[in-house]
């Protein structure tokens, strides 16, 4: 039984669309659920502030939902666009774009829910700093969306780049690898960034006078957690834009696919680990602001060490692309 290329492209579009929206909904749903759960606790603690808490919950959930809207955009694009002159590479492009966006939205969705929940709890403790908490929550949540934006950019590049002049083998594998590197690589950074932002909101509620220091260290910590997502994006760009010579064997294709998987999976742990490090630093600064310099130094050293496994993954991915 054989099918025309058009049929395969349709199948890939449905599969890619399903993967994008299916995976993309996971993170946002968890994040929004976490926010609502924390809002319940906050309202039970301080019912008279329920108005502000609901407001914060609504704003937090609206931001946490952004990642799944990115996924919706890619899913719709895959389902309703007619691609001219499709080839077998188009099949790989569609599955890869869907996987990339779906996986890439998980971390950001989960991560954005953490600061929103902490802001609700913070408002029940310190209603007087509601504005500071909301501002900090929005900054933290916005940074959490960065990895999902990387995944969105990768998906757009995959969908709007003309790969028809490339050989089918091993380009199909490079394209799938690109989607996996960027998509999986975004998970850890999104969650890690959320952990930092959550503690930052807790810190401001605990010690409102230190909000500036806490927000600054939160941003520094979050910036470092994003680096592994940048590695994923880098490997993804190399896989998409490096011209791979035609090959009759499967080994070269597998090396490129493995490079994407290696970088994507390898970025998850460091992203979360760096977030855990920065989270404790932010918490410590909100308790003892005089030790900010020492705590920041320890945090950066700790994050650098946690980052090393991500660098190993990057090195192996580059070896798989350029050497093997």
């Amino acid at each position: 039984m054989s099918y025309e290329i058009q049929t395969w492209v349709r199948v890939a579009a449905y599969l890619g669309g399903g993967l994008a929206m299916g995976f993309g909904a996971i993170g946002a749903a968890i994040g929004e659920g976490h926010t609502a759960a924390q809002a319940n606790i906050a309202v039970s603690r301080s019912p008279k502030n329920s108005g502000d808490i609901f407001k914060s919950m609504l704003v937090g959930q609206a931001v946490a939902e952004s990642a799944s809207i990115f996924a919706l955009v890619i899913a719709m694009l895959l389902l309703f666009t007619n691609f001219a002159n499709p080839t077998y590479i188009t099949v790989a492009v569609m599955i890869s774009a869907g996987l990339c966006m779906g996986l890439g939205a998980i971390g950001s969705g989960v991560g954005s829910g953490y600061p929103a929940g902490a802001a609700c709890i913070g408002m029940s403790r310190q209603p007087g700093v509601a504005n500071k908490l909301t501002t900090n929550m929005l900054i933290g949540s916005a940074v959490c969306q960065t990895p999902a934006i990387f995944a969105l950019v990768t998906s757009f590049i995959l969908l709007f780049t003309n790969f028809s002049d490339r050989p089918v083998n091993p380009t199909w594998a490079a394209i799938l690898g690109a989607g996996l590197a960027s998509g999986l690589g975004a998970i850890g950074s999104g969650i890690g960034g959320g952990l930092v932002a959550e503690t930052s909101c807790e810190g401001i509620a605990r010690q409102p006078l230190c909000s500036q220091s806490v927000t600054n260290i939160m941003l520094l910590g979050q910036a470092v957690t994003q680096t592994t997502a940048i590695y994923g994006l880098l490997v993804s760009f190399i896989l998409m834009f490096k011209f791979m010579p035609a090959s009759d064997t499967i080994s070269s294709a597998m090396a490129l696919l493995a490079a994407g998987i290696c970088m994507g999976v390898g970025a998850i742990g460091p992203g979360i680990g760096e977030g855990v490090t920065a989270r404790s630093a932010v918490s410590a600064i909100s308790r003892n602001k005089d030790a900010t310099a020492s705590i920041t130094r320890v945090m950066l050293v700790g994050q650098a060490v946690a980052e090393s496994t991500g660098i190993y993954a990057l090195v192996i991915a580059l070896v798989l692309i350029f050497v093997v």
Binding site: V63, S66, I69, V129, K132, L138, L209, C210, Q212
Partner: peptide, 29 residues
């Protein structure tokens, strides 16, 4: 159209981030 779909989120962000620069460490708010 995609940019427009995020207008509420953008407005939320800028409403809180643009108007005031307060809350310095050590200063009573």
């Amino acid at each position: 159209v995609i940019s427009g779909l995020f207008i509420v989120q953008v407005v939320l962000m800028f409403s809180y981030l643009l108007p005031k620069q307060e809350s310095n460490c050590g200063n009573q708010s």
